[in-house]
Every structure is written in structure tokens, then in C-alpha cells.
């Protein structure tokens, strides 16, 4: 499989790096202090391909912390609030769009 670092990186707007945490699989976002957070608000924002490459390389290097890192688009509001940039990321952030069965 091609490493994410070998793929051509081209971003069209503000982006983040996201992955799934290794031990439990939950969605996590790469932070500016070289860690992972379950909150999109904590994600480091990159705005050009060079920044994106660096952030992705850091994420890939942390193979124990999280798996499958990739760059995803976001929208950043005037108030600085970060929102997912597409439906897939919206679902990853907010959960399934259907009602789950009540837990017994």
C-alpha cells in the first residue's frame, strides 16, 4: 500500500490531519503540540501543502498513537470555530446520522 507520505499532497483550503486512535479506534485529530485530541477544536490547521506535509509526516511517525492518518478539509469560521469540510468528516465528528438502538 502506498504510504500517505508518498502521495501527492495538494490542499485547496484550511485542512487538518485526522486518524483513528490505535487502542480503541475513535476519531482523533493531530494537534499543534504533536499529540492527538478527540476534539476537532484542538486540531492544528494547515493552510498550504508544505505545512500539510509536515503535519502529516509527524502524524505518520506516531504509529502507536493513531492509525491511518490523512489530510481532511475543514472550514474555519470568523470566530475561529472549526467545522468539517465534507459529509464524511461531518459524520466522523458528529457520529452516525441515524438513531442508534437504545443501549440495554
Amino acid at each position: 500500500m502506498t504510504s500517505p507520505l508518498q502521495q501527492k499532497i495538494k490542499i485547496a483550503g484550511p485542512s487538518i490531519v485526522t486518524a483513528n486512535r490505535t487502542w480503541d479506534g475513535i476519531v482523533v485529530y493531530r494537534t499543534a503540540n504533536k499529540g492527538w485530541s478527540a476534539e476537532l477544536a484542538d486540531a492544528a490547521i494547515v493552510r498550504n501543502s508544505d505545512e500539510a506535509k509536515v503535519l502529516l509526516a509527524e502524524a505518520v511517525a506516531d504509529d502507536v498513537g493513531a492509525i491511518g492518518p490523512y489530510i481532511a478539509p475543514v472550514q474555519v469560521g470568523d470566530d475561529g470555530v472549526i467545522e468539517p469540510g465534507n459529509l464524511r468528516e461531518q459524520i466522523r465528528k458528529a457520529g452516525v446520522t441515524i438513531e442508534l438502538p437504545a443501549q440495554g
Partner: peptide, 16 residues
């Protein structure tokens, strides 16, 4: 990855 796949474990959007 191959070892987990051989035991039915995928990684999906929110979790394994």
C-alpha cells in the same frame, strides 16, 4: 494490518 484482517477486524469511520 494483515493479522487483524485475518481475525475479522477492520478499521471504519468511527471505530474498529
Amino acid at each position: 494490518k494483515m493479522l487483524r484482517l485475518q481475525n475479522g477486524v477492520y478499521l471504519q469511520l468511527h471505530a474498529y
